[in-house]
Nucleic acid binder design. Structure first.
Lengths: 352, 352
DNA sequence: TTGAAAGCGCTAACAT
DNA sequence: ATGTTAGCGCTTTCAA
C-alpha cells in the first residue's frame, strides 16, 4: 500500500550506514566520503525517500519557509507583489507561504503574533498589510524573529523596512501631467489633508499626497479640498471618475487626474467613460504601481512603475541577514531601511 | 529575553495538571472537567502559550493545512481563483498554503510528488495547473492522500475533480454573440482543431472550442481555420486583436470574437484598439471566467461568469470527505466529479 | 477524569 | 569519516 513512508532509518539501514551519516549525506554536509554520499543518495532515490519536514523542523528549529502576508490576492497590485515576492523567495531556496488578511484590521497583527505558525514554522516574515499602524510594536510582536515590513513608512524604522518611492513617485506623476499640459489636476487618494498635516505623515498614501500636492503647488496649481477625491480601489475609483466627469461637464473643467494607485485609476477611467468622457482625449490619467494590467488595458495606463523585483530582493536580503545574524550569534544590527526605484512609464492615458 | 517559548509542560506545571490533561483541555477534547479546562485555558492565556505546530504535526500526522497549487498569482483568473479557494479554506478552519508553478511543465507533478511538504505537511491538495496532462497517474502520485483536481476534464475522472462549465459556457458565449447580431465570429483559443478531433478532447480549451464551434455550426456560421486564432493570455491576445483588425480592414469583416478566457479578451480589445477598431461599436467581444477586472475595464467585458465560490465549496467538500474517510477508516469511495455553475454576464463589450 | 510512558523522525552534540 | 546518544514538544495509548 505504500502507506508506510520510508524514513531516514530505512535509507540508512539499506545503505549500510548510520542515520546520522545518511542525514549528513542527504543534506550535503561536509565530512562524508564521496562514495558514501553517493551510496546514500542512490538508496534514497531508489526507496523514494522524502524527508519528513515536521520532524526536521521540530529538531532543527528551521523550516526554510518565509511567511508573506498581504491584504488580498485578487487585486492588480497585490497579485503582482505576491508573485514577485514568491518568485524571489523560491529563487533563494526558501519556500514562500502566502497569507491574505482580507484587510481585517488586526489580521496582520494576528498573523504575526498569534498564528500558531509564526515564529515556529517560519524562518522569516514579509508583511504588507493595512491595519498595521506605525504605532504597533512590530519589533516586539515578532520577538526578534526576522521580519521585513513593506512600505511601513516610519520616519524612524523600528524594523527592517522596504519602502515604496511614495513621495517622489507621486510628485513625478503629477509633474508628468503638468508637462502634458494639464492645468486643472485632480488627485484621487485618501481624501484631502492640509499640507501642514502632510508634513509629518507616516503612511504611504499620506506621502503620495504630499508628493502630489507639492508638485501642484510648485507649478502654481491649486491644492485644496476641491481637487482631492477619495478612492483606493476600482469600485470607489468609478465613483470618483463620475464625480470628476460631472464637475467637468458642470463648469469645473478638470483635464488631468493623478490616482494614488493603478487600481483606482482603472476605476476612474471607467467612471469617466460612464459619463462619456474619454481618456486621454478629454482627461489625462496617471496611476502609481505599474500593475500588469496597465499594459493591456484600454487605454493603456501611464503609471509610476515601481521595481517589485528590487523590492523582493531587498526584502530577502534583509531576511537573510537576520537569519545569518542569528545563526552566528552576532549582535543584532539596527533596523535597515531601503527605498525601491521607480520609473515613469508613459502610455496612452496621458498621450497628447 | 522572552526567547524561551513556553511549552505545554510549562502550562501544565503552572496549572497543576499533567501535560496530557493540559493538551486535552486546550484542544477541547472531552473527558476534562469544566473547572480543570478553565484553569488550563486561563494559564495558557496568561503565559501567552502558543502550541508548537511542528511537534503537533509530527506526532499526530495532521497539519490542517491545505495545499493549493496554481500556475501563477499575477493573472486576472488565477488571482481570483486563489482568493476564492483561500477564503473557503480559511472559512472551514484549515490553513491555505498557496504555491505557484509558473507554468513549469512538471512543476505541478513536482509539487505533488516530490515536494518535501506534500503528504506530510498537507492534509489535502487542490491543484489547477497546466502540465498536468490527463495521462499523469495523479491518483498514484498522491498516494491516496486527499487531492482535488480543478478542471481536469477527464472523461472518467481518476481523482476527485471539479470542472468548469467549459463546453456549455463557451456555447452560451457564442450564442450570445449571435443573438447580438454577429454574423462573422472569430474564436480566440488554442488554435484550430477539426471537429472530429474535438469529439474526444479532454482539455479545458478543447472543450471550450467544442462548445464554441458547435454554436457556430448550429447557427449556420463558419467554423474552420480562418476563424480560430491562438492566445491564452493578454500578450498573445493583443496579437490576435491586431490580426483580426487587419483582416476586418482588409476585406474579411469580423464582427464578433469569442475569447476562451477573459485574460486573452483584454488583449484582443487592446489589439483592436491599436488598429483603431472599437469595442463594441466595430466588433463585439466576449470572454469566459468572470474575472474581477472585467467589471471595471473599459469597455466592461461581457463574460461567462463561473461560480468560483461554488468551486471552492465543492473542492473543500471533497477534501473533507476524504479526510473523513481516512479518519474513520471507511472504504474509499470512487472519485467524485462536479461541474460548477455559470451565468452569462452581459456588459459593454457586446452591447448593441 | 487524570496521568505515565512511549515515541513520532529527525538532527545537534558528542564520542569514536 | 562515521556512529551513538539524547531529545525537540507534542499526542497516542494505556493504566490508574
Amino acid at each position: 500500500m505504500g502507506n508506510v513512508r520510508t524514513s531516514l532509518r530505512d535509507v540508512a539501514a539499506e545503505a549500510g550506514v548510520s542515520p546520522m551519516t545518511a542525514s549528513n549525506a542527504l543534506r550535503g554536509k561536509p565530512g562524508v566520503r564521496r562514495s558514501t554520499r553517493q551510496k546514500v543518495l542512490e538508496t534514497a532515490e531508489r526507496l523514494n525517500y522524502r524527508i519528513n519536514l515536521t520532524a526536521s523542523m521540530l529538531k532543527s528549529g528551521r523550516s526554510n519557509i518565509i511567511h508573506i502576508i498581504v491584504n488580498e490576492f485578487d487585486s492588480p497590485f497585490y497579485s503582482k507583489l505576491v508573485q514577485a515576492l514568491a518568485d524571489e523567495t523560491t529563487k533563494r531556496g526558501f519556500t514562500p507561504f502566502v497569507e491574505q488578511t482580507r484587510y481585517s484590521p488586526d489580521a496582520g497583527k494576528q498573523a504575526l503574533a498569534s498564528s500558531p505558525f509564526s515564529g515556529q514554522l517560519f524562518d522569516g516574515e514579509i508583511i504588507h498589510a493595512s491595519g498595521l499602524g506605525t504605532n504597533l510594536p512590530l519589533a516586539k510582536l515578532n520577538a526578534g524573529r526576522p521580519l521585513v515590513l513593506i512600505d511601513g513608512c516610519e520616519e524612524t524604522p523600528s524594523v527592517d523596512t522596504v519602502n515604496f518611492p511614495n513621495e517622489e513617485g507621486a510628485r513625478a506623476a503629477v509633474q508628468h501631467l503638468i508637462e502634458r499640459g494639464c492645468k486643472h489636476i485632480a488627485i484621487v487618494a485618501g481624501g484631502y489633508a492640509p499640507r501642514s498635516e502632510l508634513a509629518r505623515t507616516e503612511t504611504a498614501y499620506g506621502l503620495r499626497l504630499r508628493g502630489a500636492s507639492s508638485a501642484l503647488i510648485d507649478a502654481g496649481l491649486a491644492y485644496d479640498e476641491s481637487v482631492v477625491l477619495r478612492a483606493f480601489d476600482s469600485e470607489n475609483g468609478i465613483v470618483c471618475g463620475r464625480e470628476l466627469a460631472e464637475k467637468t461637464q458642470g463648469g469645473i473643467p478638470f483635464d488631468g487626474v493623478f490616482c494614488a494607485n493603478d487600481y483606482s485609476a482603472f476605476g476612474v477611467i471607467r467612471g469617466l467613460a460612464d459619463c462619456g468622457l474619454r481618456v486621454p482625449d478629454d482627461m489625462k490619467v496617471i496611476g502609481i504601481d505599474g500593475t500588469s494590467f496597465g499594459s493591456y488595458a484600454t487605454p493603456t495606463l501611464s503609471t509610476i512603475q515601481v521595481d517589485l523585483n528590487q523590492l523582493a530582493q531587498f526584502s530577502l536580503d534583509m531576511i537573510a541577514r537576520r537569519i545569518d545574524e542569528r545563526d552566528r550569534g552576532t549582535e543584532q544590527q539596527a533596523p535597515a531601511c531601503a527605498t525601491i526605484g521607480y520609473r515613469l512609464t508613459e502610455r496612452e492615458s496621458t498621450r497628447p
